[in-house]
Design a protein around this nucleic acid. Structure first.
Lengths: 162, 162
DNA sequence: CCCGTTTGTTAGAGACGTCTAACAAAGATA
DNA sequence: TATCTTTGTTAGACGTCTCTAACAAACGGG
């Protein structure tokens, strides 16, 4: 029954993700950059940083840059992974327009349980590696998911079943 | 760029969906039933009904049952469709546990653009009808989406490309 | 027909997340 | 160093959505 775990609110996850992205892209995350990136005014960033700070997810001293704590970094990575999986699925598999996919991924990334995200990632990589599916897709995919096998093993399975 | 259109808030969409489901299941939607179904207290339902009523989506006279206006019914149907597509994808294709899928679908159903939902529905029906994919899945799927062809046509495409 | 139960509503409070307006600190430029 | 600009913070308001407590209408059995 533990599907969504305990996460920061969607809003706070957005800030967390933006901090991670900015740090990777620019080397640092400032209030102004966050404000632009998240699409809110600066006082809202201040509010969020206070919240994240209280939750032990960021370090932010007055007028300083924003740093992620280890917990914050871990959570930010998770959000980014969810975002990427959804975006990849939408663009690579459903072939949705990339701006729309970005938008949808942003909105959905807060709602995916660990179980679903895991299976979605597996699904994407399976489809990517192994376009030409064959009869018992369900069995193949299930095996892939359960055992985390790579493409070669799948190929064996497919051969066996085709 | 019109991807998400203008929708009621996620919260109001939940109420709208619940009304539609209850009307289908029980023949009517009462405040108490909505309260249980949505998982909020009755005054919250009252608040939502006021909002939906102001938006012209439901009719609700004091102490009476809730009725959907045509606009409300249309929107409710859209939400249900998004819910179903996500749920079907999670269960039938990703094979996520159905309780988890239900939970995730509920949470994501507010975030899918028309474009994505359309392609997702097509994808599901394609996979369902035509499990054994073949080489150029992308081309096949694109054609299917663009032209809304049924399984027989797809089979032709597949034959041509295998 | 009266009374208890169920159902629905009103009033008011409170968390979340945003905004504007005004101010304070830092940094650049002369 | 005095000032201008950029950046960040504070204070306070607002809209959404929820809750609890208290009350009012409707309903059903005696």
């Amino acid at each position: 029954m533990s599907s969504t775990d305990d996460r920061p609110t969607p809003s706070l996850e957005d800030y967390l993700e933006a901090i991670a992205v900015l740090k990777k892209r620019d080397g640092k995350a400032t209030v102004t950059a966050l404000s632009k990136s998240v699409g809110v005014k600066k006082p809202s960033v201040g509010w969020a940083l206070r919240k994240l700070s209280d939750a032990g997810l960021v370090i932010h001293e007055r007028y300083g840059d924003v740093e992620l704590t280890p917990d914050g970094a871990r959570l930010a990575d998770e959000v980014c992974r969810r975002h990427k999986a959804l975006f990849d699925f939408l663009t690579d598999i459903l072939m949705v327009d990339s701006a729309v996919a970005e938008h949808d991924a942003c909105a959905m990334e807060h709602a995916l349980s660990r179980e679903s995200i895991h299976r979605l990632e597996k699904f994407i990589s399976l489809v990517m590696q192994c376009y030409p599916g064959r009869p018992d897709w369900a069995a193949v995919f299930n095996r892939y998911v359960d055992e985390g096998q790579d493409a070669r093993v799948i190929e064996g399975v497919l051969d066996r079943e085709s």
